[in-house]
Design a protein around this nucleic acid. Sequence first.
RNA 1: GGGCCGGUAGUCGAGCCAGGACUAAGACGGCGGCCUGCGGAGCCGCAAAUCGUGGGUUCGAAUCCCACCCGGCCCGCCA
Length: 666
Amino acid sequence: MAQTVKQKKQGLANPFGFFRHECESALKAGYSSFQKTSGHGVRDVDIASTLEDPPNPTFGHLATSLSFEVAKAQKKKPIEVARTLAETTRKVATLDLIESIEATEPGYVNFRANLARLTELTLKSIQRDGSEYGLLKTHASEKTVVEHTSANPARPIHIGTAKGALFGDALARLLAARGHSVRTHFYIDDTGRQVAIMAYGYKLLGEPTPEGKPDHFIGKIYSVTATLVEIEELKKRIALLKKTEEADTDISAQTKSLDEWVGIAADLQGKYPKEFDKLSKLISKDPDPEKSIQELIQKYEKKEPDTSALMRRVTRIILTGFDETLRRARIRFDQWDWESDLLWTGRVAELVGQLKESGFTFNKGGALELDVAKAVEKFGLRQILGVSPTFEFPPLTLLRSDGTSLYPTRDIAYTLYKFENAEKVINVIGTEQSLAQFQVKVAFWITGHRKEAEKFLYFPIGHLLLEGQNMSARRGRFVTFDQVLDETVTRAKSEVDRRSPTLPDEIRKRIADRIAISAVRYAILSVDAIKSTNFVWDKVLNFEANSAAFINYAYTRSSGILRKLGKLAEPKKLDLLKDPAEQALVLELSKFPETFARAADDLNPTMLCLYANLLAQRFHEFYEKSDISHVSDNELKWQRVALVLAVRTVLKTLAGLLGLELAERM
RNA sequence: GGGCCGGUAGUCGAGCCAGGACUAAGACGGCGGCCUGCGGAGCCGCAAAUCGUGGGUUCGAAUCCCACCCGGCCCGCCA
């Protein structure tokens, strides 16, 4: 009730929500009157939660199964209870949006909406609120940080990472539209070994200016360098093992690994002969490449000026490439956070200090370990965080014996850092990180950040397979986000060329670009984030199967109608839209505000994808059945046009929320 | 060994948290129809599902509980 009143004040309408609200009030009053005459049934029933969607419109638009519970308590037949309840409810209901209240077998009470009123309310609301229609604002706005993508800056973004990027981006859009103050962060993991290897190779080559796309160029250097260094190391290790007469099994394992790397090296040499040969020569001159890399890592952690400048320089080149890719996919970030800054500003050291003081750490061979199990028992976290009673918590290594930090340690410090300017933090990361993300939470409890622990959300992204197989950067079984975008654009372009040959090429290009990016985004977003998905080229490129094109086509058809009509006129009333196809379409539009609010609150962009698809479907059905531009009755024509305009408005809003781009023509 | 997450027509995939008319959405593929009108990337229809298996709770279970099976992932002084 309070919510509805407040929303009225805000001016954002929720047509179906109003209907639901009327049904709730009526049912509550009807039920209490029912209790007076028929004795007590069920106590403390949450009326609102018994209202559900009936399976089809013949049962009305909302229904309650309350009678079943009451019948059980009173030992009566559900249908008898339903009849009485429908009767008492009918007496007290204000029949504005409610048309009828009826009991049906086997015992439901069905509420039918007054579609004439609902149509008027819905279309007028959309006309009035325009692009804001449906975007109900939360009453608990929170400063929210969404961290996502955070791809390792040593090679191009691949499609597995892209899945997280698309969900993170969509979440941010949804939450912002819901009225939260959202900032997206990209975590630049620049203090690890990979960036050091990359910088090492780049430096050896004399810091060449990138040819082609920067991340692809540097990624190539990284792959070649990493492979060559690994081979050097393995050779040394095997030699050492042989010298010390270690067990044959160890030697054969290392030899097997070496063979594998040599194979990879051969592939790389074939693909990038120039860089490979050059780097091969340069690395062989270095007496100890591994030591050089370790030095880079250590000097960088200490912010040694020359090393820091080099590391940042090369990482920035990669990031330029990332930015280009992300921009193409319509993904943008508010902030780029350098992991190295966490070390330099002392945040990691400070965290480690706090953890040490807590008494939950211990020393193991010079390394500092966090006793996660002890903390879980002490704070009763099994209960609080819902962990199985038999789960054994492994300790977490915070510092190596040489005193340097590990990734999880820095991640805890980073998550705390994100809370410095936010009330809520959402980490969009792969499911393989679930234990690590749990450990972050435990560390929060230990350091007394309980509020943060509560407001810290882990949004898991299911594994993405490539044509049924794991992606492997080493083996070259790896598809970059750029490749996906390129291929999809190419395919879309040839479709547009075929279907709209009369349009100028420049326009066709722009249309293809929009269709392609929408298809890629929809393909990923339309399946639950947590599910492992299989990336199949055919599926992404098949515009018959992909609903993005289907949704866009609804928009294109509506554009065609408007183009045909030219100058538009306002209808006098909105009382002629009585065809079932029209009513079904209006009903769908009326449900958009509730659907949006739920998708945002449940962090579920997939739900909105499905809604967009459903709305487009209803529109296509309407389009097939209803004449518009050539209907002779002018009043009917303009009423239908009002419906078309409303659909366009909501489609555009949906596109904005999901990052789809609609083309007027296709 | 322990844990987390998935398991729904030939394939993909909603519904599961908040049990109810589920006779299970939608799509791809298959089969059959529909263009003298606003663009057929569309519409209409048909066939196709032991909701992983077995128990339990309930008036009622795809949904909740227990056990098990299958698949993915995690349990590093990697990130």
